[in-house]
């Protein structure tokens, strides 16, 4: 099929449906409402369900119910709405349930604004609800990746029985780009012997639960879950490098910012500056080792994000603080320009 021109919000919705998702639960919030609009139109035609809940909290708990029954389920929201979902996400993690949560980030804190931001990096990667838990967090950087990483997120969530988040932003949600949906397919069959989908008395009952009154029991479930997290770390890290091989300066950026940085890197290269771009695609698990290797040859790192520098610490950990880490960012809904990043590369500290 030829490429089609789609908004990121539409592409992610269509990709979810093609990935076998038939249960979408949402609540409107700019800049991601097109997802619910698209789902409302398409889901009935494919025998699926698009339900507008009475709140974000209700929507995430509906996802928990659907995921318990073994079906592919998703919800989407933007920053303030994601905060409301945190409790439910923690329960989903505690119940070992797979699902997809999409955050089309906007500026914060509070109600903040409605323009693109990446200010929920800490929330997504470190503190997505209470308790010892992680989500798989993927950061798309184009409308094509909004589709392909939504597909990947469902697969990873099922494979490891854990929630996955797509961490996008208002620009990726609202912009249109050519997208090829041909490769976006549902798996043949996903075996979910743990699903609470009715057993007709033919097997022992399944229970999904996150409550363990006995501390020893709870500790055991958490330790088992963290062993699984180690296999995710070993197998699923994704990143992209651009002109890093001989780079003296490495810009580290994800999502919408990474593509703007790529332009800045190309501009600096045209001036003879040896600079490259490292783009984490999985924000959890974070590509610490691959990034760390670049500190063997690079002398300086620049973190670029649409927030106040939430990824700086991860970069310092990755390179073991061996090199200086500068920061170039905007926040509150302001997009970086390639020129601002170029200035940071050329030596201006921002």
């Amino acid at each position: 099929m030829a490429k089609v021109l789609m908004k990121g919000n539409e592409a992610v919705a269509e990709a979810a449906i093609r990935s076998g998702c038939r249960h979408y639960f949402g609540y409107p919030i700019t800049p991601q409402t097109e997802i619910a609009e698209y789902m409302a139109k398409r889901m009935p035609k494919v025998g699926g369900l698009c339900l507008q809940a009475e709140s974000e909290i209700s929507a995430i708990n509906m996802v928990m119910g659907a995921a318990s029954a073994g079906v592919r389920a998703m919800t989407s929201s933007s920053s303030p709405g994601i905060s409301l979902k945190c409790e439910g996400i923690s329960y989903i993690a505690g119940c070992d349930l797979p699902c997809l949560i999409l955050n089309v980030q906007r500026g914060g804190p509070g109600l903040g604004g409605i323009q693109p931001a990446q200010s929920d990096y800490w929330q997504a990667t470190k503190a997505m609800g209470h308790g010892d838990l992680h989500l798989i967090v993927l950061a798309p950087s184009s409308v094509q990746e909004m589709a392909s990483l939504a597909n990947k997120a469902f697969d990873l969530a099922d494979k490891y029985r854990m929630p996955a988040m797509l961490l996008a932003d208002g620009a990726l949600g609202q912009m249109m780009e050519p997208v090829d949906l041909d490769g976006i397919k549902a798996p043949e069959a996903v075996c979910k012997p743990w699903a609470t989908c009715g057993h007709d008395g033919k097997r022992k009952k399944n229970i999904t639960n996150s409550l363990y009154i006995n501390p020893d029991d709870l500790e055991k479930t958490v330790i088992e879950r963290f062993a699984r997290y180690e296999t995710v770390k070993a197998n699923e890290i994704m990143y992209e490098e651009y002109l890093t091989e001989d780079a003296d300066i490495v810009v580290v950026a994800y999502g919408i910012t990474a593509r703007i940085c790529r332009s800045a890197v190309a501009m600096a290269r045209a001036q003879g500056v040896k600079v490259g771009l490292f783009r984490p695609i999985t924000l959890w698990p974070y590509p610490y080792e691959a990034l760390g290797r670049l500190a063997d040859t690079a002398s300086r790192f620049i973190v670029s994000e649409l927030n106040m520098g939430q990824m700086i610490d991860d970069v310092k950990i990755a390179i073991n603080c061996r090199r200086p880490v500068d920061f170039c960012g905007r926040t509150g809904g302001v997009l970086l320009t390639p020129e601002e990043i170029l200035n940071a590369i050329l030596g201006g500290k921002k």
Partner: peptide, 14 residues
């Protein structure tokens, strides 16, 4: 897009 170019379309939505 029909000509095989890369394209982006970004509306103001504020």
């Amino acid at each position: 897009m029909a000509l095989g170019k890369n394209v982006t379309w970004l509306p103001s939505y504020g």
